[in-house]
């Protein structure tokens, strides 16, 4: 055999520049869609381009979007948490209960958040401790948590939250900038760093792509999954504080149906429902898109039923778009 001289073939770090990758990304497409909807809204209604109405528009999605940040990580890891809306109900009920004993605003908020964490830990124990499928566990706890609220409240409601508690859901930090939107953006940065810039986030992606190989690579899968469910519980607890403060009352039906809107937001943001891929940036943009659409349709006096149809159609269109584009390209290539 002839000796082949050893030629050092350096493998490049990247196939293409980060800028080229970003320009072709899903997030870029979402930004284009968001701008288009923004322009369409401002043309359709003269009331849209007003700082105060734009600020109002953010209230109807920030609470869901905060949960969507943690939900994105859970879905990327290949699991799902459908109990989040029921955690809101249970946390809100706990706060209302504490209110009867004269708890002040910081105590109420702490109780809401702690109940959220406890519910998340309960889900996490069932999923990672007993190894049960998360879709079954969280469908179960979805009924369980809200069921407790119904038992406590029946057809009653807790009212009379203190005025300083209302600030969490109604207050402004500066001019038109609400506390809710500031909190959401701050949490978005925290979750961005956690998912994309830490070892923990890398483990989430590894588990979502191939749980067995991740385990065989020395990743403590059960620990990671437990933490993820605690995070969705935590964000649901925070959302419960915001929503309860905004509404000023607790009913057992609070936030019902939110889990599907949150999952929709996450999927629209480009997170694969099968796990393994997605980004926080995509989820944040998707949250704004859904807010803009519902608010724009609201300005045009479109009834709620039509709105949900519109959101559903939008989800399907945005998911189908890249597939259709690829098919067209392939057909042209042939």
């Amino acid at each position: 055999m002839t000796q082949i001289p050893h030629i050092s073939r350096a493998i490049p770090d990247r196939l293409e520049s980060p800028l080229a990758t970003a320009l072709k990304s899903w997030e870029m497409l979402l930004i284009v869609v968001a701008i288009a909807i923004f322009i369409a809204n401002s043309l359709a209604s003269p009331y849209f381009l007003n700082p105060w109405s734009l600020s109002d528009a953010t209230f109807n999605f920030t609470e869901k979007a905060i949960i969507a940040l943690a939900m994105a990580m859970v879905i990327i890891s290949g699991e799902i948490d459908l109990s989040v809306a029921s955690i809101i109900a249970l946390a809100s009920t706990a706060m209302g209960f504490a209110l009867q004993f004269g708890a002040d605003a910081p105590t109420l908020a702490a109780i809401g958040i702690l109940v959220g964490i406890a519910c998340g830990a309960f889900n996490g124990l069932l999923v990672s401790g007993l190894g049960l499928p998360s879709i079954v566990v969280t469908i179960g706890t979805m009924s369980l948590f809200r069921g407790i609220s119904y038992i406590v409240l029946g057809d009653q409601a807790f009212r009379g939250y203190p005025r300083d508690f209302a600030w969490f859901g109604q207050g402004y930090v500066w001019w038109v900038v609400s506390f809710e939107i500031v909190l959401f953006l701050a949490l978005a940065i925290v979750f961005y760093v956690l998912l994309h810039r830490t070892n923990f986030g890398r483990a989430v992606f590894a588990i979502g792509n191939n749980p067995l190989a991740a385990q065989f690579s020395g990743i403590r899968i059960r620990r990671v999954k437990f933490v993820l469910f605690v995070l969705t519980g935590l964000t649901a607890g925070i959302a419960s504080v915001l929503l309860t403060a905004r509404l000023g009352s607790t009913r057992p039906s609070i936030a019902s149906g939110w889990e599907l809107e949150i999952v929709t937001m996450v999927v629209l943001g480009g997170v694969s429902i099968l796990g393994g891929s997605g980004s926080i940036a995509g989820v944040v943009i998707a949250a704004f898109i859904m807010g803009l659409v519902t608010f724009g349709l609201g300005l045009l006096n479109v009834p709620g039923i039509v709105m949900s149809i519109f959101v559903g159609v939008m989800l399907i269109v945005v998911i189908a778009l890249p597939v259709v584009a690829r098919r067209l390209r392939e057909r042209r290539a042939v």
């Binding site: 770090d13 070892n199 890398r202 992606f205 590894a206 979502g208 792509n209 191939n210 067995l212 190989a213 991740a214 065989f216 690579s217 020395g218 990743i219 393994g276 891929s277």
Partner: peptide, 21 residues
């Protein structure tokens, strides 16, 4: 394919996965 490589992650992330610490 099932236990060795984390298909879906890039080469460098596969290599660094157990050494992230």
């Amino acid at each position: 394919g099932r236990q060795g490589a984390v298909i879906g992650l890039p080469i460098f992330q596969n290599i660094s996965l157990p050494s992230l610490r």
